[in-house]
Amino acid sequence: MPAPLAATLRPGFADPVFDAQAAFRAAMSALAEPGTIRSLAGLDHAPAPLGSIAAALILALADYETPLWRDALLATPEIDAWLRFHTGAPFSDAPDAAAFALVSGAEALGDLDRFSHGSDLAPEASTTVILTVAGFGADTGGVAFRLAGPGIDGTRDVTIAGAPVDLAERRAADLALYPRGLDLLLAGPNAVLGLPRTTRIERI
């Protein structure tokens, strides 16, 4: 690691053990109970435009074993240096080779097919997409969705600002591939919301 870069590098977790554990538990609860809003401490000094929640999630989950894809907006030298230093994850230019994809917003998400959906033999070998959104809750003026599937007792309604408006249709196409599929972690301003491949989404 070149010394001048490290010296100017923005910090990661204040407590690598417990902060990573807390971020993981938020992500785990989010995927276990899709649509619930799981607050967690973000990394406010992560280099912009990487969001603080996305930053905390990727530091908690990525390392040298997990190829990382990020959209063009997030592929800045400063973010790259920060991610490389704090995670050691190799960058992948091919989204379908990535274990994690960092996506700055709905407009950068693109076609979901470009990410790895795993195989029938190894459906777990699929990309986890960390998508930054504007916020959760009715007061955000976002789009309302009704969710159903494992982790949900009946249905759960959620409003997401900054999610793709056609999220329901795009995920429905994905659902037909099950057990292959994509798992989404939506990173809001101070919370995470999970949409695993099993969640059925309906726009309301």
């Binding site: 053990v17 276990a32 390392d63 274990a99 777990e124 986890t128 057990p179 599929g181 491949r197 099993t198």
Partner: peptide
């Protein structure tokens, strides 16, 4: 020894497996 014995990298590896396991119930 590390908190709860396992080192950070091992925990991350297990955590990633747990997240995928949750996303594909029973697999």
């Amino acid at each position: 020894y590390a908190f709860a014995y396992l080192d950070d990298q091992t925990k991350r590896m297990i955590r990633r497996a747990i997240l995928k396991a949750i996303a594909i119930p029973g697999h």
